[in-house]
């Protein structure tokens, strides 16, 4: 589904503080599977996830999405690809404060021009699915960590994307909530979503939901085998 060919990402190129985050990465991600990018802090997991999720462009190399080269797509088209193909759950959840949970869930779909009533209905269904219907009209700053993350998941699902990307999703959750998160991921995988998770939490990479672990160190892939 996604193929990276010899991808390299350099920050502050040609400056004294030049930093190579990703070096010579070749990686193929298949549909309907669950892949974990595993590695210590600073290994390049988040950068690789950003490139896979069309949020950043590589300095060199190519990205193919469903056999379509998207490396050099203009920003407008890349945004469209990102909106339609990826749902993203951030490490800090990144919900917008001051508005309700429901509005947060609806936000990614606003540029699509869908009727407000039908969009609201879909958002409510998602909140219901994640047992958050009672929190729909609560401001997000009033929610607990687990609730905030489920709102972030609902937001990631609103455009019905094929791929869910999660960056360190359990970093701010306790063990019970982390297991709950993995259960939600199991459900999504069952529904046919492709999961891409960056994590160095054993609850994530040891979970039975995960099909494949890609290990990264110093910006390079050190192993990328399937779990038997």
């Amino acid at each position: 589904m996604i193929r990276l060919q010899n991808v390299r990402k350099v920050f502050n190129a040609d400056k004294a503080n030049e930093f190579v985050a990703i070096e010579g990465v070749n990686l193929s991600i298949d549909s309907h599977g669950a892949t974990v990018l595993k590695g210590p802090s600073g290994s390049g997991k988040t950068t690789l996830l950003s490139i896979l999720g069309c949020m950043a462009r590589p300095t060199s190399g190519r990205i193919m999405l469903k056999e379509r080269e998207i490396t050099s797509l203009p920003e407008r088209f890349l945004t469209e690809v990102r909106r339609e193909t990826f749902g993203i759950v951030f490490q800090q959840f990144n919900l917008i404060k001051g508005i309700t949970a429901l509005e947060n869930v609806m936000l990614p779909a606003y540029p699509n021009g869908e009727k407000h009533a039908s969009l609201k209905k879909r958002a409510m269904e998602l909140l219901d699915l994640l047992n958050l219907i009672g929190k729909a009209f609560s401001k997000v700053e009033w929610l607990s960590g687990g609730e905030a993350q489920r709102i972030a998941i609902a937001r990631a699902l609103i455009n019905n994307p094929a791929i869910i990307i999660a960056d360190e999703p359990t970093a701010h959750l306790d063990t019970r909530l982390s297991r709950e998160f993995m259960e939600i991921m199991r459900q999504l995988k069952k529904e046919g979503k492709t999961l891409l998770i960056a994590s160095h939490d054993p609850i994530v990479y040891d979970s039975t939901v995960i099909d494949r672990i890609v290990e990264i160190r110093d910006g390079k892939i050190v192993s990328s085998g399937d779990i038997p």
Partner: peptide, 19 residues
Amino acid sequence: AEEKREIGILKAIGWETSD
């Protein structure tokens, strides 16, 4: 900083610059 962060979030979740 809060407004900049919000713009960043909106872009990441699929809003275009024009939106």
